[in-house]
Design a protein around this nucleic acid. Structure first.
Lengths: 191, 191
DNA sequence: GAAATTAAGTCAACATGACTGACATAAACG
DNA sequence: CGTTTATGTCAGTCATGTTGACTTAATTTC
């Protein structure tokens, strides 16, 4: 209790602070803080619809993320997934195992390097992804429309710049791979 | 703009396929999915810096959210906070208690309704918020700059539209209250 | 071909922050 | 006065994140 008035000289380490001290005006700071708040609210609601659907399957948001990446970049390796999600093998293992056991994802040994397990969505997996994505796509499309012309391009530039510079190559490489649309190509072996 | 979307009658319950209308082209869907992915990456990195700092204090992201709202909208009631965060009393209670016990937040009975506990940041709380916000403000400012002129206004319109329509009044009302800048000036405990 | 490295899977143990539902208190309202 | 409201709290559960150590299989390196 009590180092209330302590000046917070944290042990943390010299993180951030960026080069030449950037000092925004208080008004500018308040404006950016409000933007951060908006981002929080937007993201909160963006994830809400799929979260609700997932509950019916006994899944959580972690499953959604895995399903999304496996569907949109099908054939990626477990290591790629770990990289994209930035979680531990253990964490991923739990949800991935469930998704595999329940038939939403299959794995296949890599043809060049057979240690690698390449991940693919099953038809059921594609159908579930499609269903989870549906409300999000509508929300995104509506919001882009509301934001007006040009907003989409600006938004993409903004979001890309928000990503850690060191991570950008990794992200680009993942995003460049099999940018596949939501196809449930007929056969719905489950849902 | 295509009329990919229309009514947005999608309360998260009406799952599966939107009516008959609203079918985006596969290419458009892929493009929006990529946008969703970017949003995930951006948000992931946006929260990373403060998360790292918080660990040094034994706090988590939940503490950050509470601190942020109490600082930016100081004097809000516990009920307002529950509304903003969309979590349960129990969940909030835990982190709020820690923040109060450790001297980052103080509460004061409302003057009109003494049942209400109005929340205020202490000097230590303001200092911590400032420190947590610093990397985020820099990131936001940089990203806005990278996105080019006009991006900020478009982004705000986009984010606002991403929020559930029913939630917007609540959000507006919270955001309208005491949009305070990051000042860790004099002033100590709650007024 | 043996050794080292790498990709993946797994174990145990643990922390955080969500949840539910029930209940206690104090203040305000009618 | 009794009811409702705002808050706080108890007990228990669940999802998802963490670390560190270890196994297995395949590839690479010497």
């Amino acid at each position: 209790m009590t180092d209330i008035n302590e000046p917070l000289t944290q042990p943390a380490d010299r993180r951030v602070e960026t080069p030449a001290a950037r000092k925004a005006s208080p008004a500018r700071e308040a404006s950016l803080l409000a933007l951060a708040e908006l981002l929080f609210f937007a993201y909160r609601d963006f994830t809400r619809d799929p979260d609700t659907i997932l509950k019916d399957f006994g899944f959580g948001r972690a499953h959604h993320r895995v399903l999304h990446f496996v569907n949109c970049h099908s054939g990626l390796r477990v290591a790629d997934l770990l990289d994209a999600l930035n979680i531990t093998k253990q964490s991923l293992g739990r949800v991935l195992k469930q998704l595999i056991d329940q038939g939403y994802i299959v794995q296949e040994a890599g043809s060049v390097d057979r240690r690698e397990r390449l991940l693919y969505p099953t038809a059921a997996g594609r159908a579930l992804v499609k269903r989870l994505a549906a409300p999000q796509l509508i929300r995104l499309a509506d919001a882009l429309k509301a934001a007006g012309p040009g907003a989409e391009a600006a938004l993409r530039r903004f979001l890309e710049a928000m990503i850690n510079a060191e991570e950008r190559p990794k992200v680009s490489s993942i995003m460049a791979s099999t940018p596949v649309a939501l196809e449930d190509d007929g056969k719905g072996e489950a849902s």
